[in-house]
Every structure is written in structure tokens, then in C-alpha cells.
């Protein structure tokens, strides 16, 4: 066992343990950043596999994304810091069954797959290769991804932003009914605008 092997096992252990702890903590912030830790460990394993760009980019992206996820988790989950302990998992039997099944299926796949033994030379210029690929054969995929991301930007702004060119987005909006043709669900807005002050 050389240093790389030891590092792999350490990162693998971190990835699995922190991924499991995500479901055991009460705090949304801790859950988000435990997930980030898990992803970072996976990213570092990718670096060990001689994919430095993909590995480090994973670390980078996951740090940003889990940060944003933490913002939204705290914003919308009751009791975000978990001051009162709560159960973070639901539908226990179904989840256990699904977990066991997926684990078995993936393990089976690993066992039956014949991985090619075509190791990348340690001095291969993988980042250059990646760049050539992006500007070569995969150009169309890559351009499509670019436009898709633009659509994502526009869509996320439309969905999340209240202010806009055409006035407030939720004017006249009512929640959907629980059964077809029924009463709108949830609390009814008192007035159309959100100018209700909090008095006590």
C-alpha cells in the first residue's frame, strides 16, 4: 500500500462518513457543510485518479453550491439550527429497502463490469486534453450546455424574483387547491399586497 492508496482510503472514509452524518444532524447548516465535506473528499479522490481539473473543480463548485444551499435551507426550513432535535429522515422502511437495493445494484455493477486497464500516463496533459475536447468533438455539447445555462439563469430569475419589470410577481396569486376545483390550500393572503406590519 503506497501513499496514494492510504490517501484514497482516508478520503473514501471521509466521503462516506460525512455523507451519512448529513442525515444525523439537526442543523441545516451542519447538514449542508457535511455534504460539502463529502463532495470535497470525492473531488480529492478524483485528483488521486489523475483528474486534477475535475477534482479541484468539484471542490470549488461544491463549496459554492453548498453555501447557496445552506442559505436556502436556513431560509425555508423550520428550526434551521436544530435547537429542538428532530428526525431528518422519513418513510424509514421504504428508504431502507431502497437504500439496500441501490447499494446492492451498484455493487453488483462494479463487480460484473470489466474495467479497462488503460491507466493514464502520470505525465499526461489531461487539462490540455480536456480543453482540446471542448473545442473539438464536444463543441456542440458544450455550446448546448452554455445556452442551457443561460436558460437556467433566466428561469431561476423568473421563478424566484418578486420584483420585476411588470410589477410584483405574486399579485393576484393564490395557492393551488388540494383537490381539483377545491378551495385554495394554505393560509389565505389577507390583502393583495404584503404590507402587513407586525404589531404586538
Amino acid at each position: 500500500m503506497n501513499v496514494t492508496d492510504i490517501a484514497f482510503w482516508i478520503f473514501a472514509a471521509i466521503a462516506v462518513v460525512s455523507g451519512w452524518r448529513v442525515f444525523c444532524t439537526d442543523s441545516m447548516v451542519r447538514a449542508s457543510f457535511l455534504l460539502m465535506l463529502s463532495f470535497i473528499a470525492v473531488g480529492l479522490i478524483m485528483v488521486l485518479l489523475n483528474a486534477p481539473y475535475l477534482g479541484i473543480a468539484t471542490v470549488f463548485m461544491m463549496a459554492v453550491e453548498m453555501m447557496v444551499m445552506a442559505l436556502f435551507m436556513v431560509m425555508y426550513m423550520m428550526n434551521p439550527a436544530g435547537l429542538n432535535p428532530m428526525m431528518m429522515v422519513h418513510q424509514h422502511r421504504f428508504s431502507i429497502a431502497a437504500g439496500v437495493f441501490v447499494f446492492a445494484a451498484l455493487t453488483g455493477l462494479i463487480v460484473v463490469t470489466r474495467f479497462s486497464s488503460n491507466p493514464v500516463a502520470p505525465d499526461a496533459e489531461v487539462v490540455v486534453g480536456l480543453g482540446k475536447e471542448l473545442l473539438g468533438d464536444s463543441m456542440l455539447i458544450f455550446e448546448t450546455a452554455g445556452v442551457t445555462l443561460l436558460a437556467t439563469m433566466v428561469a431561476s430569475v423568473i421563478l424566484s424574483s418578486r420584483s420585476g419589470r411588470f410589477g410584483e410577481a405574486d399579485t393576484g396569486a393564490v395557492p393551488p387547491p388540494l383537490e381539483p376545483g377545491g378551495e385554495p390550500a394554505g393560509r389565505q393572503p389577507e390583502q393583495a399586497s404584503g404590507h402587513a406590519h407586525h404589531h404586538h
Binding site: A57, L130, L134, L150, S160
Partner: peptide, 24 residues
């Protein structure tokens, strides 16, 4: 919150630019 969503998409787009810069 809207800014963070735009930011994520923006950043993902930019991750393509690192390998691009090497072969530029």
C-alpha cells in the same frame, strides 16, 4: 436569493473556461 441562483448558473458556465484558457 435570486442573485445566488443566477450566480450558480454563471459560475458553472465559467468552469468551462479554465480548460479553454489552456488551449487558447
Amino acid at each position: 436569493y435570486s442573485m445566488t441562483l443566477l450566480f450558480i448558473a454563471f459560475e458553472m458556465e465559467m468552469m468551462f473556461m479554465y480548460p479553454w484558457a489552456v488551449v487558447y
